[in-house]
Amino acid sequence: MLAFAITVSFGAVGLALLLAAWRLVRGPDLPDRILALDTLYISAVALIVLAGIAWRTQVYFEAALLIALMGFVGTVALALYVARGDVMH
């Protein structure tokens, strides 16, 4: 049963990644693309955690944590850049 749940989850999260990628390509505006990137990295965290469960290993934990941290910083920097034209002020 667990194997089945993992397979279904891989499928769902993979589809989520594809949909976010489609929005990233499609746009139409800058905030849409930033939001798509944001969704992409959060789904990537889910994918990595899933892989960890599927392969019974915890070595990917740090990768998931770092993607979460860096993704957030990236989203904030891009959103601030769009909102006011500079990142630091």
Partner: peptide, 13 residues
Amino acid sequence: GAFFTLVGAIGLA
């Protein structure tokens, strides 16, 4: 978890 991840992406799309 996978269901809601997918729902979020569907909403985005």
